[in-house]
């Protein structure tokens, strides 16, 4: 009998542990409202169509990284025929505000921000006196 209780207790503990993601958010305040993303005021188009950027911006960035660092290619010809310098800080963050765009969406989606900014500098935060 005592053994039975022990086994049941361990099973219960295991059950609580595996269902942790479900119950730990109970009682936390969650908003279903979409994040308030601040879009660049001076530009209408991104380097690729919005749908592509939404789903695959990381692939584009990794591709840029490979071309610039490993193949010494620096110019990106966009879908509408414009040329861009392939640069995260220069081009992307030249228009987008990291905190009001990248971070807000990543937080809302619960996607961990990749470690780009361990090295790459956010120029707007720098101007604001932050590092």
């Amino acid at each position: 009998m005592r053994k039975k209780i022990g086994i049941l207790a361990v099973l219960l503990g295991f059950f609580i542990l595996v269902t942790f993601p479900l119950w730990h958010s109970v009682g936390m305040r969650h908003s279903l409202e979409p994040p308030n993303l601040v879009l660049p005021a001076n530009q209408k188009n991104c380097v690729m169509p919005v749908a592509y950027m939404r789903s695959s911006h990381m692939f584009l960035l990794l591709n840029w990284r490979e071309l610039v660092v490993r193949h010494d290619q620096h110019t990106f010809r966009s879908f509408d025929g414009k040329s861009y310098n392939m640069s995260l800080t220069g081009t992307c963050l030249g228009c987008h505000n990291k905190q009001q765009f990248c971070d807000r969406c990543h937080t809302y989606m619960g996607v961990q921000t990749p470690n780009c900014f361990n090295c790459h500098v956010d120029p707007m935060a720098l101007r604001g006196g932050m590092r």
């Binding site: 010494d72 620096h74 800080t89 220069g90 470690n115 361990n118 090295c119 500098v121 120029p123 590092r131």
Partner: peptide
């Protein structure tokens, strides 16, 4: 980054745990 007082946004810093050295200013040569 803990030792950098001024950052140049045009060039990345490095992260801890990687090796670095002179790259003959490839970014300026470009």
């Amino acid at each position: 980054r803990t030792e950098l007082k001024v950052l140049n946004p045009a060039f990345p810093t490095r992260t801890k745990g990687v090796v670095e050295k002179c790259v003959f200013c490839y970014e300026r040569l470009a």
